[in-house]
Amino acid sequence: MKIKYSGIGPLLLPFALKSEKALTGFFFKINCMKYLSFIFLMILISSCWKINIHPDYGPVPKVWGNKPVFAAVDAAKKILYDPVKHSLINAGNIYVFKNTIFQVDVGRGIHVIDNSVPSDAHRIGFITINGCEQVSIRGSYLYTNSYTDLVTIDISDPVNMKIVNTIPNAFPDMWISYPMFEPEESGYYECNAFRTDSVVVGWVKDSIPQGCYKN
């Protein structure tokens, strides 16, 4: 049986059907699909009613999920070298400079590994850089990012690493994809709203309003 769709039907059908084959044209060899799409439409419309007509439709249900931990921008962007081994949580980019290997711990900082004797290579320290994802080095300077800032760190004296320059918000389009913007694990999380005074430095498990979901 061929059904000719007219009016708004064909435009809405893609939302109701996931099968790509069904999108090949306005003519479909289907029987029950129109009923299915009708039901889908009704669900869509009824969900709209709930949002538009009853804005106070009960409280949002609570679920177990991840809640962002915020820190004030000034505190979150402090860079600190700790000359002891830290354990790796979320392996990011790697970089090698002379006898030293750098491994980013996404969102947290950079592990420093002494590779002067490869058979005895080991972590010697950790640079805490919240929102960090990238690393590149020339001479005495390490370039990295803290959230959307471009940061230069003088590494000539490894024990006293210091920030020598920051270009604030150098990569504004990286904002929604900065490492801590979402929790690392999948599941529900409290939606992260844009703030100018604070940034996310981590995520903790808690009972949260059912909002965002990470696959």
């Binding site: 980019n93 790697i94 970089y95 090698v96 400079f97 002379k98 994802e133 990238q134 690393v135 590149s136 080095i137 020339r138 001479g139 005495s140 370039y143 990295t144 990012n145």
Partner: peptide, 20 residues
Amino acid sequence: AAQTGKGGSITRFTIAKNYL
């Protein structure tokens, strides 16, 4: 005098010539 290191293939930062 300034040497550049070497990165992996997955990176958003790279140094070439005298530019980042």
